[in-house]
């Protein structure tokens, strides 16, 4: 709270009840399958609850403008970090896979193997197993 504003207790209780109701709502909504929307709804309810706590319990509402600007700048920072990194992740051309856990001795790629191989018959060059241009993200699709 800013300079010595005494907030009525009744307001606290009303905010508290709203928060509890929102918690119940968010759990209820989570039990219903909305596809991708589940995450969006859960986050917006959480943001609403967070802003209630910040505005009333933490007194941003009666604080000076400077503090509010600072909070928005910090939130913009987090959003920027998330947004840019996600944009990179979603538009990446390189394909991911889960690498086999290799133990060095296991590799048969020793140099002497290079000239030891003698093919029975030289098969026609197989078409390149062009690594799939864009498998869905993450190996476990």
């Amino acid at each position: 709270m800013s300079q010595h504003v005494v907030v009525p207790v009744a307001l606290y209780q009303r905010i508290f009840v709203t928060l509890i109701v929102l918690t119940v709502v968010t759990v209820a909504v989570a039990l219903v399958d909305l596809g991708e929307w589940n995450a969006v709804v859960a986050l917006s309810i959480a943001s609403l609850k967070a802003s209630l706590v910040a505005l009333y319990f933490m007194g941003l509402r009666w604080g000076d403008r400077m503090t509010r600007v600072a909070v928005l700048v910090a939130l913009a920072g987090v959003a920027l970090l998330f947004g840019a990194s996600l944009n990179d992740d979603l538009t990446r051309e390189s394909k991911t896979y889960l690498p086999a856990e290799l133990r060095p001795e296991m590799l048969d790629f020793s140099v002497q193997g290079l000239d030891g191989l003698t093919p029975e018959v030289a098969p026609p060059p197989a078409p390149p197993p062009a690594a799939a241009p864009d498998t869905a993200h993450g190996a476990a699709h």
Binding site: G77, L80, A84, N87, L90, T91, R92, E93, S94
Partner: peptide, 22 residues
Amino acid sequence: GFLVWGHHMFVSGQSVNASLIF
């Protein structure tokens, strides 16, 4: 200064799209 960090990652496997923006 907070918008440009991706120019350290142009060849790190970062997407062309993100590299252009950074």
